[in-house]
Simulated assay, not measured.
Amino acid sequence: MASMVSGITLAEIAALIGDVARANILSALMDGRALTAGELAWHGGVGASTTSGHLAKLSEANLIALERQGRHRYYRLASPEVAQAIEALMAVASFGPRRHRPVGPKDEALRNARTCYDHLAGRLGIAIADSLSLRNHVVLSESAGVITEEGQRFLCDLGIDLDAGPKGSRAPCRTCLDWSERRPHLSGRLGAALCTRFFELGWIARIKDSRALSVTAEGRGGLKSTFGIEIG
C-alpha cells in the first residue's frame, strides 16, 4: 500500500508539473525571486483567472509558497528541494528528442550564466565548482561536498561566513546536476552564499525577464583574480 500511495502521489505531482503553463510558471520562479500573479501570468502565457487556478493547485501541492507584503501577494518556490527537482527534470528533458528550433541569444545567455533558485548555474556555476575543487577548497562527491579548512579561509577572505544566519536543515554544500552543462554545480548554503556575494560585489547582474545573468566588467576581473576563471 505504501508503494501504491507513493506512486499515486508521484503521478499527481508529475501531472501538475506536466501542464505547460504550470511548467512555465515554475521555471520562471527558478531565479529565486518571488513574483506576482500578474508576472507569472505573463510567463505562463495564460490569463489572470487561469493563472489563479494554477497557483492554487501548485500551492496545495506545496510546490510554491505565498508571501504577503501589505496588500501585495508574491509567489516563490516552496523549497530548495523543489528547485532541485525542476532542474533535474530540465536535465532529463535535455536528453530528449531534439526540437527543430534555432538557438537564440536568450538560450546562449542561459547556458552561460543563470540562477538555479538561489545558486549559480550554467558555465559560470560549473567553472566555480571546478575552481573550488581543483584548489582543494571543496571535496565533491556524487551529490554533496565537504568544505576544507583551506576552503573556509578562502570563503572568509571572500566575505562569506556560512555559520552566520539561520541554517535550518539545509546542507552546507550540495551539488545539483546542471541541465545545460550536464555536470554538477554547487548548491546548498555554499552555493547560495556565493551567488549572494557575487551580487553584492557587482560581479553579476540579472537580465530582464529571464533567469539568465550577465557577468559585469568587475565580475570578469574578480572571477579571474579570485577563481582563475575567464568567462564572458
Rank of each mutant, 00 (worst) to 15 (best):
G165K: 10
I126S: 01
L140H: 08
C173K: 05
R123G: 00
R189W: 01
R170Y: 02
A127C: 02
D118N: 14
I160F: 11
I128Q: 07
C156G: 08
E181N: 05
L162M: 10
A121K: 00
I126A: 08
I126V: 13
R189M: 04
G122W: 01
E181M: 12
E108I: 15
D118V: 13
H185I: 10
G165S: 07
L194S: 12
L158P: 12
A109C: 02
E150L: 15
S169G: 12
H185Q: 09
R170L: 06
S169V: 10
G151T: 04
G202I: 00
Q152K: 13
A109N: 07
S187V: 04
G159I: 06
G202W: 00
F154M: 10
G145D: 07
R197F: 01
G191I: 08
W179D: 03
L190S: 12
A127P: 01
L190A: 03
I128H: 13
L190Y: 12
S141L: 01
A193C: 13
E149H: 14
G122P: 00
N112L: 13
K106P: 08
A164F: 10
T175M: 06
S169T: 11
R183Q: 10
A129S: 12
G125C: 01
R114T: 02
E108V: 15
A144M: 10
R123F: 00
H185D: 09
C156A: 13
G159T: 11
R170W: 03
G104C: 09
H185E: 02
N112Q: 12
G188L: 05
S180W: 14
Q152I: 05
S141N: 11
G168F: 04
S143D: 09
E149Q: 15
L140I: 06
G151F: 09
V138Q: 09
V146K: 14
S141Y: 09
L124M: 01
S143Y: 07
D118S: 15
F198W: 08
R135P: 05
L201K: 10
G165V: 05
G188C: 05
L194I: 13
A121H: 06
G151R: 09
A109V: 03
R111K: 12
R182D: 02
L158A: 08
D157L: 13
N112M: 08
T115M: 15
A109L: 08
A121W: 03
I126G: 00
L190C: 05
A144E: 09
L110C: 11
H137W: 14
L132Q: 06
P105G: 04
T175D: 03
L155G: 07
E142Q: 11
D161R: 15
H137S: 05
N112P: 00
G165T: 08
G191K: 11
D157A: 12
H137L: 07
G125T: 00
S133C: 11
S180Y: 11
A127R: 08
Q152D: 07
E149A: 12
E142G: 06
P105F: 05
W179L: 00
A109G: 01
G165F: 10
A127D: 09
A127M: 02
R123N: 02
F199L: 01
S180K: 09
K167S: 12
A127G: 12
E181Q: 14
G125Q: 01
E108K: 13
D157R: 15
F154N: 13
R114A: 02
E181T: 12
R183W: 01
R182A: 07
L134F: 05
F198H: 05
S133T: 15
A193P: 15
C156M: 10
S141A: 07
E149I: 09
T148W: 07
